[in-house]
Computed example of a mutant assay.
Amino acid sequence: MAISEFKLPQGVSAHEFKSPVLLAEGLALKVARQLSEAIDTKGCATLVVSGGRSPVAFFQHLAKQTLEWSKVVVTLADERWVPVEHADSNAGLIKRYLLQGPAVKAKFLSLYSVSASLEEAAQQADRLLGELLSIDVLVLGMGDDGHTASLFPGSPNLAEALQADGTRRCWPMLAPTVPHQRLSMSRALLASAQYTALSISGQSKLTTLSAALAGDDVAAMPIRAFLQPTLEIYWCP
């Protein structure tokens, strides 16, 4: 099975690469172009990325791109509620692999805060995200269960977080894997991005994507909320 065999919704396009390295390079070039265009247009740009292990090569390639990094704001679509020093911290991942070299000049907004509870941390992140003028570039991933960001099927706050017209920007979410406690941007905020890419690799992700395209229950597979016109899917075996 290859993504070229899929019948994608109108306006959704796919880019197929032969290896993860080539995908990372191609995505980094596209993201850099989009950020440069935003800077040229309005003098600044906002990039929202996803964490986990998959984006490391993409981060490394993006950090090498020629950009006016001092005019770029970087933040996360979701975060694990652990300190930045923790091995599972997405903020820590960003600092190790993306905010290096010239890219260290970018401004980073961390969703994590030391708070009494996950709800308080989400409220703090919600206030922080109010500083964003807009999202110029969003790079999403997808889990085998159809989650994206930390919008997990079955999470207690999922229905509210998936409201297309919701006003809250960040929600406390619970993942079925450790660490369970997460912070996630809402569907409404994520969907406001000017450019969105979905980066996936492997046959299992194609199987998940096929299932997502075959139905319309967003709560069952939250990635369905983003399979909309102008989405660009980046895939490799």
Results as ranks from 00 to 15, higher is better:
residue 69 W to K: 08
residue 68 E to V: 07
residue 61 H to Q: 13
residue 53 R to E: 08
residue 86 H to I: 08
residue 136 D to G: 09
residue 129 L to N: 07
residue 84 V to D: 10
residue 141 G to L: 02
residue 151 L to V: 04
residue 89 S to I: 01
residue 87 A to F: 14
residue 87 A to V: 07
residue 120 E to Q: 12
residue 44 C to V: 10
residue 45 A to F: 01
residue 148 T to E: 04
residue 147 H to K: 14
residue 75 T to E: 13
residue 115 S to H: 04
residue 86 H to F: 10
residue 94 I to M: 03
residue 125 A to Q: 03
residue 49 V to E: 05
residue 72 V to W: 15
residue 74 V to K: 14
residue 82 V to K: 14
residue 92 G to F: 04
residue 128 L to W: 00
residue 62 L to I: 10
residue 124 Q to E: 11
residue 145 D to E: 02
residue 104 V to M: 13
residue 97 Y to W: 04
residue 46 T to I: 05
residue 108 F to L: 15
residue 97 Y to F: 10
residue 49 V to K: 00
residue 69 W to H: 09
residue 103 A to C: 04
residue 90 N to Y: 03
residue 72 V to C: 12
residue 73 V to M: 12
residue 80 R to F: 14
residue 131 E to R: 10
residue 80 R to M: 15
residue 100 Q to E: 02
residue 113 S to L: 01
residue 152 F to D: 05
residue 98 L to S: 00
residue 45 A to C: 15
residue 95 K to Q: 06
residue 83 P to E: 14
residue 77 A to Y: 08
residue 88 D to I: 05
residue 156 P to T: 11
residue 152 F to P: 00
residue 94 I to K: 03
residue 108 F to I: 06
residue 126 D to C: 11
residue 107 K to H: 15
residue 62 L to E: 02
residue 132 L to Q: 14
residue 58 F to K: 05
residue 63 A to V: 07
residue 141 G to R: 02
residue 98 L to W: 04
residue 85 E to C: 10
residue 152 F to I: 09
residue 118 L to A: 08
residue 59 F to E: 06
residue 129 L to E: 04
residue 137 V to E: 12
residue 134 S to V: 15
residue 109 L to A: 10
residue 103 A to E: 12
residue 127 R to P: 01
residue 84 V to L: 06
residue 68 E to K: 13
residue 145 D to I: 02
residue 42 K to D: 03
residue 57 A to E: 04
residue 47 L to P: 00
residue 79 E to M: 06
residue 132 L to K: 15
residue 152 F to C: 06
residue 67 L to C: 09
residue 62 L to N: 07
residue 89 S to F: 03
residue 69 W to I: 12
residue 129 L to A: 14
residue 105 K to L: 01
residue 121 A to Y: 03
residue 115 S to A: 14
residue 92 G to P: 09
residue 67 L to M: 12
residue 154 G to M: 09
residue 159 A to H: 07
residue 56 V to W: 03
residue 106 A to Q: 00
residue 48 V to S: 07
residue 56 V to T: 05
residue 147 H to G: 13
residue 101 G to T: 02
residue 53 R to Y: 01
residue 79 E to C: 13
residue 154 G to S: 13
residue 44 C to F: 08
residue 134 S to W: 08
residue 75 T to A: 15
residue 120 E to S: 09
residue 109 L to Y: 13
residue 44 C to M: 11
residue 44 C to A: 13
residue 135 I to G: 11
residue 67 L to G: 05
residue 113 S to W: 05
residue 91 A to R: 06
residue 92 G to Q: 01
residue 146 G to C: 02
residue 126 D to Y: 11
residue 94 I to W: 01
residue 136 D to I: 09
residue 128 L to A: 07
residue 103 A to F: 04
residue 58 F to S: 07
residue 106 A to I: 00
residue 83 P to S: 15
residue 159 A to G: 06
residue 83 P to V: 14
residue 87 A to K: 09
residue 101 G to H: 00
residue 55 P to N: 06
residue 68 E to H: 05
residue 90 N to V: 04
residue 90 N to G: 03
residue 140 L to V: 09
residue 91 A to T: 11
residue 158 L to K: 06
residue 125 A to R: 01
residue 78 D to H: 10
residue 89 S to L: 00
residue 156 P to F: 13
residue 59 F to W: 02
residue 138 L to N: 09
residue 72 V to F: 13
residue 58 F to V: 01
residue 86 H to E: 12
residue 130 G to N: 12
residue 50 S to H: 03
residue 155 S to D: 10
residue 148 T to I: 02
residue 150 S to K: 14
residue 137 V to F: 09
